Simulated scan of single mutants.
Amino acid sequence: MFPPIFTVAAAAPAVTALLGSNPTRLYPFGEAPQGVVYPYVVWQTITGSPEKYLAGRPDMDGYTLQVDVYADTGSSARAVAAALRDAIELQAYVTRWGGESVDPETKRYRISFDVDWYVAR
């Protein structure tokens, strides 16, 4: 019922090389635990809807996810974003590159992008 972004990312060696494997630092609901090691990624569903059929119950749900990469350096953030993109694009669609920024207080780097994912029920 939910997009398998964690399963896909955790199965990609290029992603786990950057985000770890125990745990893989990819967190739902847009929140990471306090004191998490950088780099890390948060994601959240920003919209979604079931497919619509007149003849019966939908067999697929569509989701749009916002993915945010946080890192100590710009090059690290870009490397994580590229690894995630490469893993995700085999199963879903990157639909928006949201931009790059540096938090004025923490001086951490952020890259944001959106993914459209269709999930069979």
Rank of each mutant, 00 (worst) to 15 (best):
L65T: 07
N22I: 01
T47Y: 03
R25H: 11
P13Y: 00
L65M: 13
T16L: 00
L90Q: 14
I111F: 06
Q34D: 11
G99C: 07
T7Q: 15
A11F: 01
R57T: 14
M1H: 05
E31M: 12
A55Y: 09
S101V: 04
Q91L: 02
D116S: 14
E31F: 06
A92W: 10
P4S: 02
Y109Q: 06
Y109R: 09
Y27K: 11
V15K: 04
I111G: 04
A79W: 00
A82L: 15
D61F: 03
T16K: 05
L84D: 13
M1N: 11
S112I: 10
R78F: 07
Q66Y: 00
L26K: 03
V67I: 15
P3K: 11
R121S: 10
A71W: 09
D86H: 07
M1Q: 05
T106K: 11
T45S: 14
T16V: 10
Y70G: 02
Y70Q: 12
W117V: 05
A79L: 11
A17G: 12
L26N: 04
Q34L: 12
F6G: 12
Y118F: 14
I88F: 13
I46V: 15
G62F: 04
A81G: 09
F29I: 07
D59G: 14
R25D: 01
L90H: 06
F2M: 12
V36P: 15
G30R: 06
K107Y: 08
P50Y: 00
Y53P: 00
P33G: 02
F29R: 13
A79F: 05
T73G: 10
T106L: 10
A81D: 07
Y27L: 12
I5Y: 00
S101C: 03
L26P: 05
W43Y: 15
P28E: 12
V37W: 01
T24I: 01
V41N: 10
T7P: 00
A83D: 10
M1Y: 04
A79S: 15
R96G: 07
R121Q: 13
D86V: 09
R108P: 02
T24K: 01
A82I: 14
D68M: 10
A87Y: 06
P58M: 03
R57Q: 12
S101I: 08
R78C: 09
W43R: 10
A92Q: 12
A83H: 09
Y93P: 03
G98P: 13
L18Y: 03
S76Y: 01
V8R: 10
S21G: 12
I111K: 09
P4I: 00
E89R: 15
A14E: 15
V102H: 08
N22Q: 14
T73F: 04
P3W: 04
V42C: 09
